[in-house]
Amino acid sequence: MVKEMFQNMMSNSGEWMNGNRGQLQLAGMSALEQRALMDVLKAKDEMTENPMRIGLWG
């Protein structure tokens, strides 16, 4: 279910990836999953020089 929701979000022109996350539908995600997603998106925002580096934790 999370993956399908993710794919739907990507198909909406990926706007949410570029900061427009107000309409982000997180229904169906646990609090832990929501935190994980928000942290990944935050890391993506911060990795301007090498976006591929968001594939890390910590």
Binding site: K3, M10, G14, M17, A36, V40, K44, I54, G55, W57
Partner: peptide, 27 residues
């Protein structure tokens, strides 16, 4: 390929899945 990986959200999705397991470890 790298552009497609980025535009499809492959990296974001798999990073999200990785972090989910890592945060579960912490919990």
């Amino acid at each position: 390929l790298e552009q497609i990986i980025a535009s499809t959200g492959t990296l974001i999705y798999t990073s999200f899945r990785m972090r989910t397991h890592y945060y579960r470890y912490l919990e």
